[in-house]
Design a protein around this nucleic acid. Sequence first.
RNA 1: GGAGAGGUGACCGAGCGGCCGAAGGUGCACGCCUGGAAAGUGUGUAGGGGGUUAACGCUCCCUCGUGGGUUCAAAUCCCACCCUCUCCGCCA
Length: 426
Amino acid sequence: MLDSKYVEENLEKVAAGMKDRGAPFDSGRFRSLDQERRQIIKRVEELEHERNVGSKRFGELKREGDQGAADRLQAELRVISDKIKDLAGDRSNADNNLREFLLGVPNMPHESVPVGKDSADNREVRRWGEPRVFGFEPKDHVELGKILDIIDLDRAAKITGARFALYKGLGARLERALINFMLDIHTREHGYKEVLPPFMANSESFIGTGNLPKFAADLFKVEGTDYYLIPTAEVPVTNIHRDEILSGDDLPIKYAAYTPCFRSEAGSYGKDVRGIIRQHQFNKVELVKFAAPESSYDELESLTANAYRILELLELPYRVVVLCTGDMGFSSAKTYDIEVWVPSENTYREISSCSNFQDFQARRASIRYRQAGGGKPRLVHTLNGSGLAVGRTVVAILENFQEPDGTVTIPRALVPYMGGVERITT
RNA sequence: GGAGAGGUGACCGAGCGGCCGAAGGUGCACGCCUGGAAAGUGUGUAGGGGGUUAACGCUCCCUCGUGGGUUCAAAUCCCACCCUCUCCGCCA
């Protein structure tokens, strides 16, 4: 959520930023909501002041024993109190209206973000590794998964439905190996603290990260509760410090978390229906940072580097693109997507998304810090990125490391995590 | 699921109708002390919002888990809900 004061003082700038994003923004409506709220607050506070002064006076009269004056004053005060009660509803309406308006406004894009309409306008900023030249027709991961009997989509559909996977044998072990490998690298070499959060979170947490109220349709809700299945560890992990004031000395705080992720994928019918690229449930190792505003963009660079390092260790070719204004997520000020090479599609596919949200989430979730020299608490900047999506990493390994007979070589770095297995065979 | 106890500032903890945004302590900041540090010592130190101001500031309102209620007046009384702890039951 943007700061209403910031919006009020930079109305044109905000309108321009929203235009770059392709997001509707009614600055006239903002202005009238803002002013309405201020007027009501002023009126209520004047009445409250009157009541407080009168109440004190009433106490004095009682002590002095002037019963007549006290009774008269009490009658007056009762009228004032009633008026305040009448206005209470107006006030909360005005507050809610403004808040609701602002909750629907996406973050301002950072100045370094290219202006553009959609993914075609994203800009490549890094490319690593050479896509392998196959001396044969490479198979896709669905076929490989069947041949090796490690991914069973038919039975998963029986158990649950479409867009679910059943991993078996070395497939299940590969998934587990990748989770452990990623967590080990991030915790031992990149300085993140491992956390294992709840896989459900309440609506307040979802509002904190910006998933609610706008994107309820993307979530699975647990019936009869206020809980939703998490679509990413970003939600529970960012909310670790909701409503807290952190010590500036502790920043940046860096967490790495493995969780499954649950997404309804509403509106993606017909998209990536084959295979395990797009699932209702998938595993992911997520990186989350709480940083001081001065250093948050440096932290975004290092977080992104921490994520693509996994791909380098796994010898998987990738590229990094910076998303343009029109392609960025709702809460993000700047996003890098890391895309891994997928031979069967002859293209790079997103495997990680690394974003700086600046104070957008921190304001919603009230996550602040106090600087070493004391002073007022300031909002932290929050960042996160996948490090990495595990299912898509499996896809990349199977397809990039396949042999003509359908067997798959395990990347060297992963062999210890596979219990010494160097190759998946039939 | 049943019975009980409790949720107060960055943290611990007192207060149980007006003199309480809140004693005391810890932490933190600044100063004294010291060759330097520790110890000691003095002072200060909640958050959010409105008005006003170029700004420093001044001023008002709200906040003692959350939301209602009683009252001229609520941290304090009543109701509902959430969370934590203890005991019993059940359970992995």
